[in-house]
Amino acid sequence: MKHTWAMAIDLDRCTGCGACVVACNAENNIPVIGEAEAGKNRLMHWIRVNRYWEGEYPEAQAVYLPIPCMQCERAPCELVCPVYATYHNEDGLNAMVYNRCIGTRYCANNCPYSVRVFNWYDYKWEKPLDEQLSPDLTVRSRGVMEKCTFCIQRIRRAKETAAEEGREIRDGEVVPACVQTCPPGAMLFGDLADPHSEITRKLKDPRRFRLMEHLGTEPRVVYLKRQKGAGR
């Protein structure tokens, strides 16, 4: 069965706590780069929580926006890769083939959401911190672009388990690390190809919007606007 993976992020629930960021660090072997590199805006995080200020004191307010890779249906990053290192996979995800990547960084340049991060160095895990590295993923080397994969290793595992047991993947059976840990339950992940999945229902919410819709990138990450006041 063909899947259409999608993520919903309910900004009415998001508190900006950053649990998703560290969960992703742990799941995806994301290196720690240190203060100097962080100052150059080279954080390797695959999901970040943007904070925007709105208004002035005393009406000042902050808006949080967790931003993973949007897994665009019409992805600007894919078009510019000269070596076909980033491509559209069978489930419609933007996948990366690290071995093909030659580090032109055209894709990062063309991504309107700035979610692609580049390995400027061979980052090291001081022993025994390397014991924690997930065996499901590679550790990327210098000169390679990387980004959020919707935890493709979890999707693959769920597919294998389902195939072994001769069934379809159940709704909610596979969730990325960020969605799994999100304390207020602001994130939801599922298959839009399944008309009965929770996410299909959730995305009928009139609050839905996508980042920079005018660009026509058709992101697979859909946000739900914050609400105001009591009641609905």
């Binding site: 649990a19 969960a23 742990a26 924690q132 997930s134 690390a177 799994q180 840990t181 304390p183 339950g185």
Partner: peptide, 24 residues
């Protein structure tokens, strides 16, 4: 080797959720 810490879905305090400090 421990690879990842996740919230215990059965635990009444956090029901499968965990914060950044817990992950670390």
């Amino acid at each position: 080797r421990a690879k990842k810490v996740e919230g215990n879905p059965l635990h009444p305090v956090n029901r499968g959720k965990l914060c950044a400090r817990g992950q670390a």
